[in-house]
């Protein structure tokens, strides 16, 4: 199918008696932001892990651009075009911002096997890294050590590293986590633009951001997708109100 970039087909995963994923089929179409929401323990992280390759589903498949990637390892999926960000920043803290971005650039191109020429001296890699930093607004901080960055800057760098991969699809695990109102708003504006470059599968707890950004929302409860639809459809869906949004919506 050409109108989906990324999709899962009937993914099931159990841990003992706990069914963390029950026959999950979702898709991500070009140019859209598809948000996955659900209460804690709904199986969002398990779903992400199966899409990105950290966990293998018991049944079902994951497809990227129509190609079955279920058997691929995490790094192979990344090279195939899956760009992810982590809920808890996974950055090389001892290294500089630029080094982290260059790592993304050289990783995506599968070029770590050089033992002599400087990585930062590679014009192509450096250009890609700097362009990504520029886009998220971290160009000024490029020489800083990651450990010296503020939490907000680390979140920005997470996104920048994913950008250096020039992925076909983004998978973002709570990119807003821990950001203040202002930071959240900035990132929302940025992701709004980013969907033109590649669609985003967004797991997020920040409902303001989800409602502002999402073209479609899937609601995950106890490992099951109970509803998929536009923001308005989800807002008014009685099952969703029951299971998740509760009185507050």
């Amino acid at each position: 199918m050409t109108d989906t970039v990324l999709r899962t087909i009937g993914i099931c995963k159990s841990f003992g008696a706990l069914q963390a994923s029950k026959d999950i089929s979702i898709d991500l179409r070009p140019g859209e932001i598809h948000a996955i929401i659900g209460p804690n323990g709904a199986g969002k992280s398990t779903l992400i892990a199966q899409i990105c390759g950290a966990l293998k589903p018991d049944a079902g498949r994951v497809e990227l651009l129509g190609k079955d990637i279920t058997a691929l390892s995490t790094d192979q999926r990344a090279r195939a075009g899956l760009g992810r960000t982590f809920q808890i920043s996974a950055l090389a803290m001892e290294d500089t911002v630029l080094e982290n971005a260059v790592l993304g650039a050289l990783g995506a191109r599968g070029r770590p096997w050089r033992f002599w020429a400087s990585a930062l001296g590679d014009k192509d890699l450096r250009h890609r890294a700097e362009a990504a930093l520029e886009r998220v607004g971290l160009a000024e901080a490029r020489a800083k050590r990651c450990a010296d960055l503020s939490h907000g800057q680390r979140r920005q760098l997470e996104v920048a590293v994913a950008l250096t991969l020039e992925p076909k699809a983004f998978v973002m695990d709570e990119p807003m986590a821990g950001l203040g109102a202002a930071g959240s708003k900035d990132l929302t504006g940025f992701l709004d633009q980013l969907r033109q470059q590649a669609p985003i599968l967004l797991v997020e707890h920040d409902m303001d951001a989800v409602f502002a950004l999402a073209d479609r929302i899937s609601v995950l409860v106890y490992g099951e997708v109970i509803a998929t639809g536009s923001v308005d459809q989800i807002r008014t869906d009685p099952r969703v109100r029951d299971a998740y949004l509760g009185e507050s919506a």
Partner: peptide
């Protein structure tokens, strides 16, 4: 050789592999 190695793509990647293996996989490196 060590000095060159640590700044070359290999050293940068290896150094990150020690710090955050998950990040390395996420950018397509094993």
């Amino acid at each position: 050789f060590s000095a060159r190695l640590r700044r070359a793509p290999f050293g940068l990647s290896l150094n990150a592999a020690r710090q955050v293996p998950a990040r390395l996989e996420a950018v397509g490196l094993d």
